[in-house]
């Protein structure tokens, strides 16, 4: 298992502490009836400030679990989570989290959902209103500020969630398959929007996805996780493609295909393993939910 910590994309920050460092992380779930399920085992992962890291792996391998540990929503059974050199206890106050499922408050309009993110920071109402409108415009939803979540498309809801996360200007961004349920075109548009917003003030970003092409097109580094149980990191690749990128066009480049082939070699084994375990694993997952 190789898990080299690569230097960040912007070389100037090389000497800085990692924004997120996971060291020797084990996570075991206790199921009903005294059963245990070890989701991940001995995970080491460091993400430098300004680095865009994608995590890929078969469904159910523990990607969300790992992200939850980095967010402080879940305390690992063993190992250390360090945020800019400081051990994490409780919620990770320096991180923003974009959830896989719908996480907007359904009883609030798009505007109110984004605005409310500033309330814990003590921003005045008038200013919060102005900033929220500004952010909604930046994600292309100027005309939709008064809509409730159910009146928005899946892609639009993700845009609101993106604005809600980014308006607080967190130093670390955690994203869990944010574009998972969207159709192919919308994914591309959202991918470019994300790159556009991210490149303005590069934050450390952990991006979980099951789509390898998306991972390569977006990130500086792609980390491959093995199939669970006791999933670990099996490979760690740098993506030396130049920025700025257009994620539709970059897929046509030769370098892209080479990286894709390399990573897919590692990933395919894990996907097949997960698939082969299919039936038995389903039972464990069923018990978990």
């Amino acid at each position: 298992m190789e898990s080299k910590v690569s230097p960040p994309a912007n070389a100037g920050a090389a000497a800085e502490l990692p924004a997120v460092s996971l060291a020797g992380i084990d996570i075991t779930f206790h199921l009903q009836g005294g059963q245990r399920y070890q989701a991940v085992k001995k995970i080491d992962l460091a993400v430098a400030p300004g680095e865009f890291v994608s995590v890929v792996g078969p469904t159910g391998c523990g990607k969300s679990t790992l992200l939850n540990a980095a967010a402080g929503l879940l305390t690992p059974s063993a190992g250390k989570v360090t945020i800019f050199g400081q051990p994490l206890s409780g919620l990770n106050r320096r991180a923003g989290y974009l959830f896989q499922q719908d996480a907007l408050m359904p009883w609030k309009t798009a505007l109110a959902n984004v605005k409310v993110a500033l309330e814990p920071m003590g921003v005045s109402d008038a200013q919060a209103d102005r900033q929220a409108r500004d952010w909604l415009a930046r994600v292309g939803l100027r005309a939709f500020v008064e809509r409730y979540p159910h009146m928005l498309s899946g892609g639009q809801r993700k845009r609101v969630a993106l604005a809600q996360m980014l308006i607080r200007d967190p130093e670390i961004l955690l994203m869990d398959e944010p574009f998972g349920p969207l159709d192919a075109q919308t994914r591309q548009i959202m991918g470019n929007l994300l790159l556009d917003l991210w490149s303005k003030d590069r934050k450390a970003l952990i991006f979980v996805t099951h789509d390898l092409e998306e991972a390569i097109a977006l990130s500086d580094r792609v980390v491959v996780m093995s199939a669970g149980p006791a999933a670990g990191i099996v490979a760690d690749y740098k993506v030396p493609l130049p920025r700025p990128r257009d994620i539709a066009e970059i897929r046509l480049e030769k370098a892209f295909h080479e990286i894709h082939r390399d990573i897919w070699t590692s990933l395919r084994v894990e996907v097949q393993k997960a698939y082969a375990m299919g039936e038995g694993k389903e039972l464990v997952e069923g018990a978990a939910s």
């Binding site: 919620l91 989290y97 959830f99 719908d102 996480a103 907007l104 609030k108 814990p120 607080r168």
Partner: peptide, 20 residues
């Protein structure tokens, strides 16, 4: 998820009560 999201946005107990 809505609850976890609200907590990640930094809401305290009072704010969670009001908004969630």
């Amino acid at each position: 998820t809505v609850l976890a999201n609200a907590r990640m946005l930094g809401m305290n107990e009072r704010q969670l009560f009001r908004h969630v």
